[in-house]
Amino acid sequence: MNKYSVLIVDDSEADRYLLKRDLKGIKNITHVHEASNGKEALDFLTNHENNSKQYPNKFPPLFIFFDINMPVIDGFGFLKGFDEIKDGYENYDSIIFIMFTTSQLQQEIDLALSYEFVKEYLIKGDIDKTTLKERLSKYH
């Protein structure tokens, strides 16, 4: 069974905690990294050398859960930023982005899904442990 890490990008500490807890049931997850906004997330992803050493075979994360409304760099800024740097790193095109938000604005959903690496869109509060596990199992 393939083990992997995930990254949660959300400015709400409570929401990161809740998602983390929901992911506890999935045995394949070795690490849950956290970032409180798009900038921190991009810094984490571009810090390739150090992180590869620190998390051998578990970096980059397989799944990245991201929210939209965050300060400094928001969800869309994060997607755009990632789109620009991903080709510079090995394996980055296999990272699966999952939008995780309270927003149900169709424009926002469409914009996020227009990036080919954004594969899923989940609504906070509508997802529980079991559904989460099911959704992720499609990809590994």
Partner: peptide, 21 residues
């Protein structure tokens, strides 16, 4: 209105889930 209700919904949803945990 949209933003305000969105920003209100976020913490309320979190509070709900925290309560169940």
């Amino acid at each position: 209105s949209y933003r305000a209700s969105h920003d209100l919904k976020g913490p309320l949803v979190s509070m709900q889930r925290l309560a169940s945990y």
